[in-house]
Design a protein around this nucleic acid. Structure first.
Lengths: 258, 258
DNA sequence: AGAAGGACCAGTGGTCCGTA
DNA sequence: AGAAGGACCAGTGGTCCGTA
């Protein structure tokens, strides 16, 4: 029975398209596929990026049919495999990922989508006189999922927040890093790690106050500062100071690490 | 064994006085009394307000001995009654409550104390490079308790937040309300209820944005807007608008409810 | 191996309701 | 009755680790 999924959606004022797609996903046996679950106005962008079938032979149907891997022959029945988003690869700015991969422009686009979902949640809250979130909270992720953006989830977005931060704060540096890591053939994890260092340098110039750095940028202010970035800034501040941690905070302009 | 309470305190850099008092409370059999648990630098203020023994015959010891009510004769043993703070009564500005009561100046003073505890928590967090609370959170209440201010607790502070808000935002109106309700012999609950209306009026003048009203005042911005005040503002906005809730927000200056 | 995300967990905001 | 606050609860921020 699909009534639960449809009921949940019917309260949110979604397009009939999204409801229909969610219904299809529910019918498909509990698993569904990411492709099917992607709904509403956000789907177009995702489609554009999803250039599949480099090795595969099956032409995908827009609404039905799985994104079957070779080892999974269970196509005819009601049992889809549990599909995940394609992994990210390091791409240059403007470059579309080929194969079963997603590029970094697409990654950053997800942050913009989350911002739009937050704005919608805020508007609803204001209208109802309820307390209004200023950050991308669990509530926003839940809203995004109901709106059909099932490819957005909290662990992923939190994982790459600092990469998005660098993209917002110093797009040139971010682009240069992407090109360098692509040229070197580094994987996404290595690129992600490398994004921390320039951010710490930016924080250093702002008195080591990474919260202030985030809050000063309107698109970044809606994201929680990642724990690891905060810790790195704290460690570097104490190293850079060259004295007891007690002094801290005020000595920002004297020392430049990078 | 008192080691747990002492250990918890020893990490917070408290005065030995507070630790000793906590130990006494623990020894006293799990109950302890509020008087004993009150410790550290904050105690003085509390003492000043606590003018007891109007009907009672027992002179209180500063550190030992309960604040025994007539019906409780269990004084000699290790079993203290579970003491609560004296209830609030409506007092005029500057008036000290008599008998086993606390006055409203004392109530508002508790909010100032919480602010000081928040500032301490913030300073510790900044020093450690941890995320820094902007509001009076559970963490702050926990810190206050460990610091010996056991008379501060979350339900009480949340209960009277809007009364403190009126005191901050329009002290003249707050004082007038206190005098009027005292003159009429109203109880604290009635006074508390009456504090909502002038706050809604203030919010009305600020485009019904009660969050903005709180945030604009530095001592108030650290407190969460109470749910009921938020709801009242929302209801009044829709009533005042005289049309569909869709219009909302922009029509602030035209209509004055009070 | 490298990576995506379901699902868990400690501690939160909120306040009810057993207590005095 | 009026009031103080321990203690509970649903939903949070954070991220681990079983999964693909």
């Amino acid at each position: 029975d699909t009534s639960i999924a449809v009921d949940a959606l019917s309260q949110e004022g979604l397009s009939e398209e999204a409801v229909q797609q969610e219904r299809d996903a529910a019918v498909s046996g509990g698993g569904g596929t990411w492709e099917i679950a992607v709904g509403g106005g956000k789907k177009k962008i995702r489609r554009r990026k999803g250039q599949k079938k480099v090795v595969e032979v099956d032409e995908e149907d827009e609404l039905e049919g799985g994104d079957d891997d070779d080892e999974n022959g269970d196509t005819g029945g009601g049992c889809y495999e549990r599909q995940r988003e394609h992994p990210f690869i390091v791409t240059e700015p403007g470059e579309v990922a080929r194969g079963k991969k997603n590029g970094l422009d697409y990654l950053f686009h997800l942050y913009e989508q989350c911002r739009e979902f937050l704005i919608q949640v805020q508007n609803i809250a204001k209208e109802r006189g309820e307390k209004c979130p200023t950050k991308v909270t669990n509530q926003v992720f839940r809203y995004a999922k109901k709106a059909g953006a099932s490819y957005i989830n909290k662990p992923k977005m939190r994982h790459y927040v600092h990469c998005y931060a660098l993209h917002c704060l110093d797009e040139e540096a971010s682009n240069a890093l992407r090109r360098a890591f692509k040229a070197r053939g580094e994987n996404v994890g290595a690129w992600r790690q490398a994004c921390y260092k320039p951010l710490v340098a930016i924080a250093a110039h702002q008195g080591w106050d990474v919260d202030a750095v985030f809050n000063a940028h309107p698109r970044l202010a809606i994201w929680y500062v990642p724990t690891k970035l905060r810790q790195l800034c704290h460690l570097e501040r104490n190293n850079a100071t060259g004295s007891s941690p007690i002094s801290g905070i005020a000595n920002n302009s004297a020392i430049c690490l990078y």
